[in-house]
Every structure is written in C-alpha cells, then in structure tokens.
Design a protein around this nucleic acid. Sequence first.
DNA 1: AGGGACTGGGTACGATGTGCGCAATCAGGA
DNA 2: TCCTGATTGCGCACATCGTACCCAGTCCCT
Lengths: 248, 248
Amino acid sequence: MADAEYVNIWMRPERPAYGPTPGYSRAQITEAAVRIADAEGLEATTMRRIAAEIGAGVMSLYRYVPSRDNLIELMADRVMGEIDVVGMPSGDWRTDLTRYADELRAMRLRHPWIVTVQRSLPSFGPNQIFLIERLMGVLDAFVSIDENLGLVAMLNGYIEGTSREEISSAKELRRSGLSESEWMARSAPYVDRLVKSGEYPIFTKIVKEARQPHLSRDDQFRYGLKRVLDCIAAALPSTGRVSQGPRD
Amino acid sequence: MADAEYVNIWMRPERPAYGPTPGYSRAQITEAAVRIADAEGLEATTMRRIAAEIGAGVMSLYRYVPSRDNLIELMADRVMGEIDVVGMPSGDWRTDLTRYADELRAMRLRHPWIVTVQRSLPSFGPNQIFLIERLMGVLDAFVSIDENLGLVAMLNGYIEGTSREEISSAKELRRSGLSESEWMARSAPYVDRLVKSGEYPIFTKIVKEARQPHLSRDDQFRYGLKRVLDCIAAALPSTGRVSQGPRD
DNA sequence: AGGGACTGGGTACGATGTGCGCAATCAGGA
DNA sequence: TCCTGATTGCGCACATCGTACCCAGTCCCT
C-alpha cells in the first residue's frame, strides 16, 4: 500500500489534493488530546474520548491521524513547542541553559504524561528539531559536535531525571485517589519497616530529611542544575568561560 | 475490603496462612514476564501470554499478583537486582561509580522495556532500595545527603538519558519490521528534507557525523561519563578527591 | 454534467485486563 | 478421625480498547 511509504507522520501530508473540505484538523485533534491527557492522564486519552471532546465520530479521527501512537508523537512535539527558545544563542550560554532547563522542567510538570512517551531521533517533529537546533547552538561555538551531544545529554538527563521522580510520585498519589496525608499514612508501614530494620542507614537519612524539607523542589532543582552547569563550564575551552561565580 | 490496606506489593504477603499448596510463585511469574518482555516487548507481555508461558490459567496469575501494573513493578525490581554492587563502598568512589554506570547501562540494554516503566520512591522494591543504599553509600562519607541526592540524580540522569535514545531507536527499528538499511532508506527523505532546507545547520552536523561514527556507542558513553565523574569530583571536598587525572 | 477522490461516521472484530463463581484441595480444631 | 473453611486453579463473561471495513454524501477537476 502507498501509505506504508511514509516512515513517520511528519512526511505524511495532512491535506490531500481535493474532496470535501475537512471539518477538523490535526492541530485541533492534537490540542484536544493534550487537554485530556493533562487533565486525566494519557491512559484516559482514548480515541473515543478525544472524538467526544471535539464532537466528532470516533473513526473520523483516522482521517487525520494514522494511529493513536502517531497521535501521541504529535502530542509530544506539540508540547515541545511550548518551550521558549527565542533569541537563544544569546552570547551568555549560562543564562541560556538555565532558561532552557527551567522551561523544560516547567513544561514537563505541566504535561506529566510526556514521561511515558518514547522518542527516537528519526521520529522527532519540527518543534523538537527546532529546539535541538537552538539548544545545541548555545554551545556550538565552543565545543565539537560530539562534545556538544554529550553535554546536552547530561543536561537533559538531569532535567528529565529529577522531574521524573516528582511526576511519578504525583501520579501515584492521584491514582490512589487518596489525600496526601492519607497516602503518606498508608505508606508509613512500609517505610517504617525498612527504617526499623536498621539495614538501610542511607535510606533512613533520606526519609528523615524528606520529612522536614528545608529546600523546596524548585530550590533542589536549581541547586543540582548549578552543579551541572559548572560541569559544562569545566568542559569548555577558556574562550567560552565568561568570568562568573567562584572557580573551585 | 482488606486488600486496599496495602499501598504497594512489597507489603502484601505472598503466601497466606493455609490452604492447598500453591502451584506457582510470584518469582516464577515475574521471571516469565521478564523473559517475554525481553524477547517481545512489554506490550506483548499480556496476562494471557504469561499464563501460557508457565502453563497456567490466566486467572491463576491473580492469586499471586494483584494486577498487571503491580506485576510490572515486580519486574522492574527484579531486573534492578541484576546490578552487581557487592563490596561497593570500596574506598575508590570513581571505580565504584564507573562500575555502577556500566552495569546499569548494560542492564537497560538487556531489558529495553524498563524505559517505559514509572518509578516513584514509595513503590521501590527491596532490590531498588538496596541499590540506592550501596550507590549513595559511595559518596556518603564526603558530602551531605542533599548533595548526594543531587549528584546521583545527575549520574542516573546521564545514564538513563543516553541509553534511552539508543533503546527507542532500536525499538522503533524492530517495530517497523524492516532491516536497518531499509529503515534508514525510508527515513532518508525526511532527514534530507530537513538538511536540504538549510535551516538546521546543527542538525545537519549531527546527521553527517552520525553517518560516519568514529566513536562506538560504548566509547561515547564512556566519554560523557568521564565528564560527569569529573563534575562529581569537583563537588567533593578535597578529602574525597584521591589524586587522579588532570585537574582543569 | 459527470466522475472520482475525499469526507464523516456507524458497525463490527479481535484483543485486552479482570470480577465472579465453582469445584477441588489441604491445614487445624473437635 | 472427620469436619470446617480458607485457599487453590481456572473457565466464563464483560467492559473497554484500537481500528478495519463499509457506505452515503460532498466537492473539485475535467
């Protein structure tokens, strides 16, 4: 069949040559799907639910999107577009990367479901590509492309890793349908058993510390981010290191 | 109901008081599920498929596991146990963390499906907890628990981030059912369109570079890992920095 | 004016997770 | 020793999912 020719959605044209004027659009469907996923999670984002949201028949969606998996790819790229990188190789890489990190983190917390979607380079959509372009453009003047890839992998890894734990906790909390205090009370026996056993001193430390958090989530994130940026600074040749902050 | 009392599987006893001797076990079911997921992916790991694998009725599985989601948690903890951390605060933190990184990476490549499973702290199983204990024990003597959390977040983020892309690409390749060359040929029009547009110089660089990779995946990983470890070294007080490698 | 590519959408199918019920099994109290 | 009831393995049934197929109506092109 001719449709199998396309490896991904980005090559598949939305509008065909002619015929009746379509009543919906990819963007509209994607938008509705994102709205549902934000409010009720990705597993609630079914084709029927989306169709109901925009007042269409279920099968009508397939005139615009080849499959649910492809729709999820569209959703992922759609939210990537929320990350503001205008004017981003600004000359001050540290400011640029801090802004990027904050925006990516905020976007992930706004759309918790993205942690479950897979990405691979050839399935990257226009927003994703554009984002990579701007992000890697920040360090492009200072390091080789290989080094750049390694550094952004580290940066993204940190951002995604820290937000991931935060997101899954929140999701599990909501899935249980309990209040936060109720849920902690339920978890207590398990945590207590581990602590009481005395075999996990470090886990115990973490629990004790987490129960009286003197740092907010945001502060924790900023704190670790500073470390990552310091690491990037160390990897840059001296031309890239504008004078700032303490060295060592 | 009494079952709702348990927040997670780790508190729920496997064997009840008495009755007929069970014919299967949680471990056996988990093992079978991991085997199937390794070979055919997590979406192929259905209750019916697992039951068939061990020669049981489908509903028999529910005598051992409350739900499929919980089974996946068991699977995740099961593969965490493969990471060898014996004797791990060895005194040389750099060796310890390198070994951990290599093992975690290798485990993720062996069990590609873990990238799709969510984790949150209170759902951590015994293996996961034990692993955290040993891993964070490596730096515990040198830094505060907060700093330690930040550093391992960075390390884990790097490892997970780099393996993630590798894994999704491989998965997409297999899902398409094409050979690697066939698949690259199919992707070519999309990539070419982006390159030809001239709007994405950095993306173009990446593509050109990736087509003639002078570094293996392993080498790329090791290279970036060294950067991360250097960053950790910089965060340690002087007592923790054993003499090695170039400073600055 | 007519033909063909397209539209929205109803019906139907196979696959999934899992609640319910039932006969068979085995430990503990009499 | 035998009864009682907790627990076993498991078939049946159901709701819900993605989506293949079909058809009538629509609109551009020749």
